[in-house]
């Protein structure tokens, strides 16, 4: 038996603690998806109309630097959330995303989730605080890289 979207959402660390009702509502906006190795998930500047919970595989966030090509700025693995540009206007991706290997995920429809949140502020709060936590963790990791810890001290 294959897992339904609901099963996958209920099993995700990101949504741990969400009520069954909220999970059920979210599952109506969700669908399972696969990215083949070497495929682009979205391009920088594209319309941010969904986000993903990664179940297996890997997604690279990248940006195109003239003369250097597509530079990977961060890698996301199983358990990670991909995409938060859908949260606020202008709903455009700030970075690109690329699947260097076959990657399984659940995608959630942005306008559907936004509608749910507007109707039900309790769900809105639950989701927003989870996204803030993800953003804080990524910010901290970025700050750590900013420290350039492995550099030879001068």
């Amino acid at each position: 038996m294959t897992a339904t979207s609901y099963d996958l959402l209920a099993a995700s660390a990101f949504l741990t603690g969400l009520s069954e009702g909220h999970l059920r509502q979210l599952s109506y906006t969700a669908s399972r998806c696969v990215f083949r190795a070497g495929s682009r998930v979205f391009a920088e500047g594209g319309h941010a109309d969904r986000f993903w919970l990664i179940n297996a595989g890997r997604i690279d966030l990248d940006t195109h630097v003239p003369g250097r090509g597509d530079v990977v700025v961060e890698t996301l693995g199983p358990g990670a959330v991909l995409g938060w540009s859908w949260l606020f206007p202008p709903y455009r991706w700030h970075f690109g995303a690329f699947a260097p290997q076959t990657t399984f995920a659940v995608s959630l429809d942005a306008s559907g989730v936004r509608r749910l949140c507007e109707r039900d502020p309790a769900l809105g709060y639950q989701l927003t605080s989870r996204f803030v936590q993800v953003v804080v963790e990524r910010l901290q990791a970025t700050r750590m890289r900013l420290l350039d810890l492995y550099k030879v001290p001068s």
Binding site: D70, V72, T75, G77, A141, M144
Partner: peptide
């Protein structure tokens, strides 16, 4: 750079998954 096919990020991130 673009020749690197591995992960980009800090070590503690590897613990998450």
């Amino acid at each position: 750079d673009t020749t690197w096919a591995g992960r980009v990020g800090v070590v503690p991130d590897l613990i998450t998954g």
